[in-house]
Design a binder for these strands. Sequence first.
DNA 1: GCCCAGGAGTGTG
DNA 2: CACACTCATGGG
Length: 283
Amino acid sequence: MRFELEVAPIDLNLTLGCGQTFRWEHSPDGTWSGVLGNQSVCLRLKGSRIEGNATPGGRGVRDSVLEHLRADDDIDKIQRRLRRDTILATGMKRMRGLRIVKIDEWECLVSYVLATYANIPRITKMVNALATKYGSRIVNGRYAFPTIEQLSKASAKDLARLGLGYRAGYIEEICNQIDERTISTLSRESHEDLRRKLIELPGVGSKVADCVCLFGFGKLESFPIDLWIERALARLYHQKGSYQRLRAFASDRFGEYAGYAQEYLYHNERMRARDLGCVFSKE
DNA sequence: GCCCAGGAGTGTG
DNA sequence: CACACTCATGGG
């Protein structure tokens, strides 16, 4: 099933390629293929439009993609707000096509529990391993991310064997503690309540909770602080200290769109490390 | 072999 | 509050 979308500005490489979501793969011809819900989807940029291709019989794929890419976000408005920060203002424009992704809440929670102390290639591998082993088959080699019920059938030992390491126990325990109703209840909570309740789950600390708030529940004011953000805040803003302190700084400085600020800083810091140029001013 | 990774949990000062 | 240590493993 083919479809076309207008999601300008959008940069699929920036948005899908660098560690927000772990289920998209990039082909040399510029195509991105991944799984949304129980559909296999391919996306390609054609001018300012997105050309899409999904597994047949798919209803609502178009809407799934629009939601996943947060097509309704007003990027200009967001950038106008963040431009008030002179440090962000410079490099931000080049990243107009970078979007926060909206991931399924459950998939996001599991993915970021797996993400603790692992690098992106490995996280991708773990998430795909879960899908392949416990998810429903969609089409040749593509599997939906397992539902809570499906993943509940896995023992910690099974999961450890899949290469999850010490994270296996967290996943098992989370499966025991929550179900689909928990997710829908959580999705009605305010940002702070949601964050607090997520942190009660095993394997979920401040950082994972903030990622799940941002990418899973669409709370754009969340500001996850990983090692890269910590470096960026130290280098560009001379801010150091506890997670709580840095979080307060970001909330105060970036406000309701702190999540977008975080992505801009994150990508910039990583690009800098790879010596692909310094986008933001140095000092 | 070495170092690092979108950290969390637990214990101690 | 701040540290220090452990956890398990693949990727560069």
